[in-house]
Design a protein around this nucleic acid. Structure first.
Lengths: 181, 181
DNA sequence: GCACTTTGGTTGAACGCTCAACTAGGGGTA
DNA sequence: TACCCCTAGTTGAGCGTTCAACCAAAGTGC
């Protein structure tokens, strides 16, 4: 500290926007988390794991792929998959080509669980997020989110964009997609 | 379940916006949390409590006011204040007029702690949130956030708006404001 | 005055996340 | 082969949040 110049505070408008944003995202998160927890008895994180698996070829993904897909830490995923495994929704399989690796595989029960959970969750997202927004605001929110995301991962941005482009071109989505993660 | 019609999924665009939004907010939150934790050794929640207190008249707030201000649960606040109290940043005082009630009071150490933490946090917010956005996007984000927030608390919306208007009119902000929570 | 409900707040257990330490297999070099 | 480093993933402790149960003081009705 010491002899540093007065830090640059936020402008009144930035301040206001930041607080609105902060409260809104917190409330939205809590709302969706609660909905999922109540109606389907699973935390949002687990739901996202199941969705990612349900969209993957053969309903299986390497642990790291799963982690990267949702920007989750490996540790968190390991814990999460352990829990999902205990629930019988996911099964681990060791990778024959790389003995360090492990696959997370969606079980039939897991597929059923997400299938049951999805409609309510999607409905909640549509209602709480898209409901109060105009069409233009939805577009704007998408652009804003992308800008923030890219700003946060300068080096990952290129890779992420590449991956997205690839998957967009390849049209990966298999079998059935639950529209939301 | 049973005989219900095919649930309405999200459109492709909604899907895309939702995922971008989801990832962006998660990353932003993690980024800010990490910055605060590393540079000032406090979680964002605690920072917000300290900010709220620092902006309150006499640096004191009833537990419930504190909870409502940031849409936090009473339980969480109680735990948080206990922790802050252990750190010497906040002190509890029983309320003479309502013997059930309790005040949370910012201590001198707490004030110093937040004063030290604020510049780095504000800088992080400006850089990661406002940095990548255009002026119009900032305005749009504010409106979007407000719309979402109001949509989420239909009955609270009126009260919240009233409270905000009141505080805006009254010009409450005392002594020193740290521009960010 | 006496019950009943509501409100303000706390507590402890269960749970998910973070962080750092750790195991173990892969890949390179000599 | 031996060595070294990197990568994939797991583990356990510490911590914050949630949830439900709980207590005490205010109101409320009679």
């Amino acid at each position: 500290m010491g002899v540093m110049s007065e830090p640059r505070w936020l402008t009144d408008e930035e301040q206001h926007v930041w607080r609105e944003f902060s409260v809104a995202t917190r409330m939205l998160q809590a709302h969706l988390e609660g909905q999922l927890q109540h109606e389907s008895n699973m935390p949002h994180t687990y739901y996202e794991v199941l969705v990612a698996l349900s969209e993957a070829p053969e309903h299986r993904l390497r642990m790291s792929e799963l982690a990267d897909a949702r920007k989750s830490s490996r540790s968190r995923l390991s814990h999460a998959v352990s829990r999902l495994e205990a629930n019988g929704w996911v099964r681990r399989e060791s990778c024959p080509t790389d003995k360090r690796g492990a696959w997370a595989v969606l079980t039939a029960e897991g597929f059923a669980a997400i299938k049951a959970a999805a409609p309510g969750h999607v409905e909640a997202v549509r209602e709480s997020l898209f409901g109060p927004l105009t069409a233009e605001q939805v577009v704007a929110l998408g652009e804003i989110s992308t800008a923030i995301r890219e700003g946060l991962s300068p080096r990952c941005a290129a890779a992420a964009a590449a991956a997205e482009a690839e998957s967009a071109c390849a049209g990966e989505v298999p079998e059935e997609s639950f529209g939301v993660a």
